[in-house]
Design a protein around this nucleic acid. Structure first.
Lengths: 343, 343
DNA sequence: CTGAAAGCGCTTACAG
DNA sequence: CTGAAAGCGCTTACAG
């Protein structure tokens, strides 16, 4: 205990200095790999560090340097496949670079609530990665104060969505376009769409890709059905679509939605793919094992997370190269749930 | 810029003091809600804070106080349902308490690798929550240095697994016991088990509950089949079990495993539940929407995460009450995948 | 009720 | 090559 009431847990730079018989500045030089330290001095310091089990205090380092090796991921969700995989990718890359990773959840898209979360994330020091796939995320990205290092993970952008801020994306517009074309090529007259909540008031990238494919094929454009994020929403949407006998092909905004649609069609007595074809989005781990196994399009979310971190890392270390922005090309995976329409 | 090269981003306690015409100590008192500040002074300071957009620097606070409002979750995985839900629960509770939450992934159970991760987590300051459901997590919990605030999320413990450290658990031994009894009560001669990797070299809690139910019923005890964590492993295990015509009931260590088993039985032409009953573990979001929908046992993982944080919070604020340790009672959910054995 | 001092554990120029 | 000083932005006793 000293005057300010601290109990000293571990040893400090000064303890090491005392043990090595040098000043603490010299210890600082050694732990920072500064070249101008005599070899014998360095060795004595290193020995003392080892003996005392010294670890440099990250908090003090951050305060003295004015920045910390930390990144916090701001996201509306941590459990859905896409979000969770991006977080996983960020963590992998951050760990490799010896950065700590924090996570802040945006529970509401409400302006005040979002601002509070962004502030909290900013308070943590370090940089920010914002997953802007939904209204809360988009708003968060917009409200990051200028000067704070941030990269956005965004949907396929119509135009640059974040001003001059760096961002990464995987081409889900293209992906939606590809799956829709796949279904049309099987002979379906049109493809219905069960949508995930869009990131903005306007059309989402996935909806856009689907619509474009229909347009090019001269197919009718049925209104998208809103499905939410999970199987329950997909189930409700599926029951609705099952009532319409003209529906022969359904594209879903993600694989969980597709799972619910599959179930709804089963309950309605409509066979897949015999009477209705179903396709998902993301290629979640379970999709290959459903019965029928799910036709879907694979997106590299962990790669996206790694790319987001790499970009942020460049910004933080001020060695930022012109980074690639489109991370990967989506891959169509055709399985049992899609086939020719009934004759 | 000043002598040490810092560029001052936002305003400090001193700027506020200057603007309010008081000393910075008084500002400190105001932001800490200290009672002995004259009302008029307080108002002037508050006005200055508002005007300058002052936010107290969390790093400096942590350094001065010697501890930070932070928790880091150490886990082998962030995407599997149980792990992801625990993390979600921790984040919810931490956010409500204005704690920041970090996450560190234990990619290997290797002793050196685990130690590195524990050290990194400790460096972040604040407390630790370790998910000890697997060898990496168990080892991490063991190697947390004494004196560091930590709570473990553990399997049903045979005896106190972490010495004097606080821990929380949900009763998965009981859960396994219940599902097994459910299957036996339907008339099955015995129940086969597809296991998730155990947390230690010894029997896991789930395996133990299953075995106990068999023992009490005088049923034969077939050797557990190792399935790993995901549907692919379940699929392989399912194909193996499908070859044995005497198998009429299969319990799986989690719902993803069950999904793979369901698929394997389908491929082998064995109907569920007509010929074989299948039950899972966890009640993941998709399980109710599978065809057949999955009989399983619901575990409250987010509640577990919240409880872990509450316990840690108590430890950190030194107001630790004797906390409840068993968080919730598992709930059997009977759906379509279980039924009577074939005649 | 309010201010001046010392300290948290580190870094960055500045001297020698 | 190495040491003494000043500073990061805050808090905690200590004086008045």
């Amino acid at each position: 205990m000293n005057v300010t009431g601290h109990t000293r847990g571990s040893s400090s730079i000064r303890d090491v200095a005392a043990a090595a018989g040098v000043s603490y500045q010299t210890v600082s030089r050694v732990i920072n790999g500064h070249p101008s330290v005599r070899q014998s001095t360095r060795e004595r310091v290193l020995a003392a560090i080892d003996e005392l089990g010294f670890r440099r205090n990250a908090t003090a380092l951050a305060l003295a340097r004015g920045r910390s090796r930390a990144v916090t991921v701001l996201t509306a969700n941590t459990t859905h496949y896409g979000y969770a995989s991006i977080l996983q990718g960020v963590e992998e890359a951050a760990r490799a670079a010896a950065y700590s990773v924090g996570v802040g959840v945006l529970e509401s898209a409400d302006e005040a609530a979002v601002t509070v979360e962004v502030q909290r994330a900013a308070d943590a020091g370090g940089g920010l990665i914002v997953i802007a796939y939904d209204p809360a995320g988009v708003r968060a990205l917009e409200s990051v104060p200028a000067g704070l290092p941030v990269v956005g993970v965004v949907e396929t952008p119509a135009s640059d969505p974040t001003g001059d801020r760096p961002w990464v994306w995987t081409d889900d517009r293209e992906a939606a376009y590809e799956v829709t074309r796949h279904l049309l090529s099987l002979g379906h007259e049109t493809v219905h769409y069960v949508a995930i909540p869009s990131s903005t008031r306007r059309t989402s990238a996935r909806t856009g890709g689907w619509r474009q494919a229909l347009k090019e094929a001269g197919a009718p454009e049925p209104p998208p059905v809103q499905g939410g994020w999970g199987p329950a929403g997909g189930h409700a949407a599926g029951l609705e679509l099952a009532r319409d006998p003209s529906v022969t092909a359904v594209l879903c905004g993600n694989d969980d939605l597709a799972l619910g649609v599959l179930r709804a069609l089963h309950e309605a007595g409509r066979s897949v793919p015999g009477e209705v074809s179903v396709a998902g989005f993301d290629d979640a781990p379970h999709s290959a094992y459903l019965t029928p196994s799910l036709t879907t399009v694979r997106l590299d979310f962990t790669g996206l997370g790694r790319a987001a971190f790499a970009l942020l890392h460049g910004v933080l270390e001020e060695s930022a190269p012109v980074a690639p922005r489109r991370v990967s090309v989506p891959e169509l995976v055709v399985r049992e749930s899609s086939g020719r329409p009934p004759a």
